[in-house]
Design a protein around this nucleic acid. Sequence first.
DNA 1: AACAAATATGAATAATGAATCACCATTCAG
DNA 2: CTGAATGGTGATTCATTATTCATATTTGTT
Lengths: 217, 217
Amino acid sequence: MPTSNIASDAQSKPAATRRPTRAEKAAATRQGLIEAAAGVVGEFGYADASVARITARANIALGTFYNYFETRQALFDTLLPELGQDLIAFVGDRVRGSRDTLEMEERGFRAFFEYLAANPGFYRILNEAETMAPKAHHKHFQALAIRYVAALRIGLARGDMPAYSEDDLETVVYLLMAARSYLTLRYGLAGGKLPENVVETYIKFVRGALSQRAPAP
Amino acid sequence: MPTSNIASDAQSKPAATRRPTRAEKAAATRQGLIEAAAGVVGEFGYADASVARITARANIALGTFYNYFETRQALFDTLLPELGQDLIAFVGDRVRGSRDTLEMEERGFRAFFEYLAANPGFYRILNEAETMAPKAHHKHFQALAIRYVAALRIGLARGDMPAYSEDDLETVVYLLMAARSYLTLRYGLAGGKLPENVVETYIKFVRGALSQRAPAP
DNA sequence: AACAAATATGAATAATGAATCACCATTCAG
DNA sequence: CTGAATGGTGATTCATTATTCATATTTGTT
């Protein structure tokens, strides 16, 4: 449930089923297009996500598409950032309350794959975006990395990562995001679940990397 | 200098400039197509690498293309595996004679980015292949991972990685390959050179990961 | 030299799909 | 109630390109 649109809720007291406002219907149609696009792109990839296919899945006419997006590319450029908010929120929830950085990392890692299992098209939407919607890709990574760095910064202050400094954080974050992506590529696409021994190897690797003691100056 | 074609060298004694044989010319034309394709795909991506563009850059007529490849896709399916051999050979050379696993990893890591700097299109050819030439992508990763695992296996036997076992190796290799890819995505595309502080963070991260001591059973 | 086989050429074909547009339906402000 | 205005429709236009093929050129052989 992405972008909670604040469409004209002048008096939204009784949620009773009243006739939907024009703006509400428009918001629903737009949302339907986003969801249809997520399905089609996830299944066929951006290149084969024709406007005809997307509108067919959204149960609207082809021409209607252009009431909501300037071009097909404009939809592609907003798709990943909107869906990415879901992922970020989901992982954020799962991670909250962790005792230390390692626990947080393991929880976040598992949450990521849980999200992928529940949203099988997401990996493809994410990866192909680098080529097919570079602005979207950049925006998503920006949004994700900034939160991830902030989370690690807390662990850094707490002394969980004695060998690292603020300047290392972004690089470390990209290493961790990289891991998720490539492990999905290699192990994740079948059944949507990562083999447990792969998870264990990952945890071991990251524990060694993060909790090593500071090198002598 | 890829695929050294063994084209009809019945008597190849004097390398003097004799009139090129038909098979030699054919091999050169094919090679020209591969190189042109590498250039075009690296610059514009697979989607915009039209047969017309590729043949124009190779200085041959459009129709000639189809004397060398069944379809455009057939070229795409062979492009990355052929180029990938170059990368593998280059990194293999740079890594030979390393004293331990960490030294090897650092040398291989740096060699990878040196290769990218010398072949600016390679990153794109590699990444887009996941979508545009999945068979090629799989083949390349197969070829690369098998050598990488073999290299780590030697370090494992020597005791360089006390916390790991044979079963961990492939996962670790994917983590290391992932790192290269995402660091290129984030830092590498400008100037072709990775900032030295990023390299240092990477080395530190991997040292901690690989050389941690074995956990208690 | 002369011919057959192998290669090269690029205009023509055919498929695809994004985007437009002229028109219909529904909503809502006054 | 009424008539803009907003939203919906889908056939049509238009551009792009992979692939084919009839023809021309080059090569290797006798």
